Amino acid sequence: MTEYKLVVVGAGGVGKSALTIQLIQNHFVDEYDPTIEDSYRKQVVIDGETCLLDILDTAGQEEYSAMRDQYMRTGEGFLCVFAINNTKSFEDIHHYREQIKRVKDSEDVPMVLVGNKCDLPSRTVDTKQAQDLARSYGIPFIETSAKTRQGVDDAFYTLVREIRKHKEKMSKDGKKKKKKSKTKCVIM
């Protein structure tokens, strides 16, 4: 069974824990209790493949930012979460993405942009803004509501699919490099 290491990042209060708990335990946590770091595991079937999701729910508070490099190193894919009623959390996505790329030393890291709290009427981040940002990053965008469960499975499952595509691409690139290195030079 394939294991996928997913990391949920975003500013404090955007609903990272609520999304994760909704996926794992099928219930909505409405009281806000700032996370330092929590880890969850769940076995699911995605596109006919049974897999184990190892999900790291991270601290959004700035005082825990020193811990970010460590979990970013171990993560295979990242859910970059903002709240649709919090423009600052949307603007912060850029910083999370840049930090992930720096730590992973790669421009090509599996990510999904997630606009959470889409059940709320007080939207300050337009869907088109988020779609445009995701398009500019070359990553999928999904709106979710941890409260109603809308888009929750889709967000995590899409990230797994992005990781699969990335692994497939990397193995193809690896095979191309191996083929090239088999060419021999004969000096007579």
Rank of each mutant, 00 (worst) to 15 (best):
S17G: 00
D132W: 10
C51F: 06
D132A: 08
G13H: 13
G115V: 11
T2P: 06
K178S: 07
I21S: 07
F156Q: 12
V45G: 06
M188K: 12
R102Y: 05
K88N: 11
R73N: 11
D153N: 06
C118E: 13
V125G: 10
N116F: 03
K128S: 10
R41Q: 04
E62M: 14
I84A: 14
Y137I: 11
E98I: 00
G60Y: 05
D108G: 07
G77P: 04
V186G: 13
L19M: 12
A18E: 00
Y96C: 06
K172M: 12
A66Q: 10
M111R: 02
E162C: 05
T2Q: 15
I139F: 06
G13A: 11
E3K: 02
I100Y: 10
D33L: 14
G174V: 08
D57Y: 00
K5P: 15
Y96D: 02
L53C: 07
G60W: 04
K167V: 11
S145D: 12
K101V: 03
S39I: 11
E62I: 13
L113A: 07
T158I: 14
D154P: 08
L23A: 12
I142L: 09
T124K: 11
R123V: 09
E91V: 02
K169D: 08
E107K: 12
G75A: 07
L79R: 04
T87E: 14
K178Q: 15
P121L: 10
D38S: 01
E62A: 04
Q22P: 00
T50Q: 02
I163S: 01
L56W: 10
D30S: 09
D57A: 00
I100D: 03
Q25S: 08
V152Q: 06
E63Y: 03
V9G: 05
D126V: 08
G15W: 07
L53V: 10
A11S: 09
D38E: 05
V9L: 15
L56D: 03
K16H: 01
S39F: 05
D108Y: 08
C80R: 02
D153V: 06
H94L: 09
R41G: 04
L113T: 12
V9T: 04
T58G: 03
T158C: 05
P110W: 00
G75C: 13
P34A: 02
V29D: 05
V186L: 12
R41K: 05
D173N: 12
K182W: 03
Y96F: 10
Q25D: 01
L19W: 03
T20S: 13
Q150E: 04
S106K: 14
T2E: 10
E49S: 12
K167I: 09
E37M: 00
R135T: 11
K42T: 04
T74A: 15
L53R: 01
G12I: 02
D33E: 03
F82V: 05
K176S: 13
K104M: 13
A11I: 07
N116K: 03
K88R: 11
Y40L: 02
Q25C: 08
E162W: 06
I46Y: 08
G48F: 05
L113V: 14
Y4H: 06
R102I: 08
L79I: 11
F90V: 08
C118Q: 07
D105M: 10
L19E: 12
F78L: 10
Q70N: 01
A134C: 10
V8L: 08
T183I: 05
R164W: 05
Q129I: 07
Q131A: 09
L56H: 01
T124P: 09
V186S: 14
D54V: 01
G48K: 09
I36P: 00
D173C: 12
L19D: 14
V8F: 01
E162R: 12
D173A: 06
M67C: 03
K180M: 08
V44I: 08
I24E: 11
I93G: 03
D57I: 00
Q25T: 14
D153Y: 04
P121G: 13
S39H: 00
F28L: 01
E31Y: 06
N26V: 05
V125Q: 10
E3F: 04
D108Q: 07
G151F: 04
E37S: 00
G48I: 06
V112L: 10
I93F: 13
T2F: 05
L79P: 01
T50K: 02
L133C: 08
V8N: 01
